[in-house]
Write a protein that binds this DNA or RNA. Structure first.
Length: 477
RNA sequence: GGCCCCUUGGUCAAGCGGUUAAGACAUCGCCCUUUCACGGCGGUUACAUGGGUUCGAAUCCCGUAGGGGUCACCA
């Protein structure tokens, strides 16, 4: 039988990392088994609907490289994949479930609360006579439909493909509302009906549904439908206690993209949170994931989101990029920095690629090209290079005229020139280059060596900064 | 509180009765190097806890502790 999985988000705002992972696993499971991946929008809560949220979901999936076979915009079965458009279907099935004894009309308004928590609904409307129900319905009284959990001592069990056998006793289940008084179904009902109607064979979702699944299975049973397989996923945590969630900020896919993480790296990382391949590989493309994904690699316990590891993966992806690919992704960040548009990006790219972990670091790495002056003279002191301000002054005063006399601006020539100058005044090449780099950048660490920085600055600016630094040194000594 | 579930280094994560308990990130040290990176090499760090079962337990069973989930006309 063909495997069919689905991702069924509620359009309530942004695409959370946890949801994305659920979508990814459902997608991978379908693809790994030659099956179909379906998207269904669960918007039965009119109060929670957020304008534009559906677009966010589709944009995110697209950026993440997750495509789908059926869903909004790709209707296949002659029906909608948006639950709010399926209202009539749920009503029809609710009525059938009532006929089959799996549910009943309920006219109760509130419920009794005690301070020990909620008490189970007492099923009082189940005892209503057929006549009374018909009469109240005819009168137009508002009602809900409740699931009728057996009153016997039984248990409902199922085997989750990740967690193994789960059993819950009937007495621990409640007669949940299936159809709300506004005619919309609840998740409890819409899910079962749609998963069945859409032929879903494997239900993949967060483990918050682990203990309510037996209840849903009772609905399948009452209808005489075949139950699907279940794959419940452990949560992604912010720390040991807290789930990664919107409440704690920055857990949305878009936020990570804005911060300069590559979609491929994000997808790769979250694939590894809660699952691992047999072969231990960590850099995995979508094709690799599809090839390697299997449910026995899915982990059972929560995983804490570790941004440091995401950074590492992101950096690895960047290192594998060509200069062109890198600039394609990095250009917006370069444009937004102080050097925006002013330097030869092609010269910057190879210097940045091994140094950038997250694209948003780019400005802090290159801004010194535009910002220069008033740096700390102690930067000239370097133990290992045997340099200090006095050595630097000597080196720079010899270098300045030599560079002025240079024809053109060739870095090989400059390098040799500096080396020769150093030798002529009894200094080591390293002493010259260290001093020179500090003098033209004013920074202890720069994205490249002395000549690379000089190349970026150009001859004129290099000479200007050199002259400035010599003056600073003189006044400092 | 009832019910369901979870527990290997700081983090991810192999492991499914016999291993010197993998690997990765992070961290520390060394090497490379005209800085910083990259890269290379090496080190530190783990089976929550108490009982069983067994010749033998990270692996099986029970309890304890800690944590999560759920108990809505939200999903």
């Amino acid at each position: 039988m063909e495997v069919r999985t689905r991702f069924a988000p509620s359009p309530t705002g942004f695409m959370h990392i946890g949801n994305l992972r659920t979508a990814l696993y459902a997608y991978l499971y379908a693809r790994a088994n030659g099956g179909k991946f379906i998207i269904r929008i669960e918007d039965t809560d009119q109060g929670r609907y957020v304008e534009g949220a559906v677009d966010v979901i589709f944009n995110t999936l697209k950026q993440a490289g997750i495509d789908y076979d059926e869903g909004p915009g790709k209707e296949k079965g002659g029906y909608s994949y948006v639950q709010s458009e399926r209202k009539a279907i749920y009503k029809q099935y609710a009525e059938e479930l009532i006929r089959r004894g799996g549910a009943y009309y309920c006219f109760c308004k509130g419920r009794d609360m005690t301070d020990g928590g909620t008490v189970k609904y007492d099923k009082r409307c189940l005892r209503l006579s057929k006549e009374e129900v018909a009469e109240r319905l005819a009168r137009g009284e508002s009602y809900v439909v409740r699931q009728n959990i057996p009153e016997t001592d039984g248990v409902s069990s199922y085997t989750d493909l990740v967690y193994g056998e789960i059993s819950v006793a009937y007495k621990d289940m409640e007669d949940a509302v299936l159809l709300k008084s506004d005619g919309m179904p609840t998740y409890n009902f819409a899910n079962v009906v749609d998963d069945h109607l859409m032929g879903i064979t494997h239900v993949i979702r967060g483990n918050e549904y682990l203990s309510s699944t037996p209840k849903y299975n009772l609905i399948y049973d009452a209808f005489g439908w075949e139950r699907p397989q279940y794959i419940h996923l452990p949560p992604i945590m912010k720390d040991k206690e807290r789930k990664l969630s919107k409440r704690y900020g920055d857990a949305n896919f878009d936020d990570f993209v804005k911060k300069g993480y590559l979609p491929k790296a994000i997808v790769n990382y979250i694939a590894l949170l809660g699952w691992s391949p047999k072969n231990n590989d960590e850099m995995l493309s979508m094709e690799d994931l599809i090839r390697l994904f299997s449910v026995d690699g899915v982990n059972i316990s929560p995983a804490i989101f570790d941004e440091a590891k995401l950074r590492w993966l992101n950096a690895s992806y960047i290192k594998n990029m060509s200069a062109e690919e890198f600039l394609g992704a990095a250009r917006p960040f370069l444009d937004a920095s102080k050097v925006g548009g002013k330097y030869d990006y092609a010269l910057l790219a190879p210097l940045l690629i091994p140094r950038v972990e997250v694209l948003s670091e780019i400005p802090s790495l290159v801004d010194f090209l535009e910002e220069f002056g008033e740096y700390d003279l102690s930067l000239f002191t370097h133990q290992k290079m045997k340099t200090d301000a006095a050595v630097a002054l000597k080196a720079l005063e010899a270098a300045l005229p030599a560079i002025q006399a240079m024809d053109g601006w060739d870095m090989t020539v400059l390098h040799d020139l500096l080396a020769a100058t150093a030798e002529s005044i009894g200094l080591k090449k390293g002493q010259m280059l260290w001093s020179f780099r500090i003098a033209i950048t004013g920074h202890a660490s720069t994205p490249g060596g002395a000549t690379e920085m000089a190349a970026l600055l150009g001859k004129e600016e290099t000479l200007r900064r050199l002259a400035y630094s010599i003056a600073r040194l003189k006044e400092g000594l």
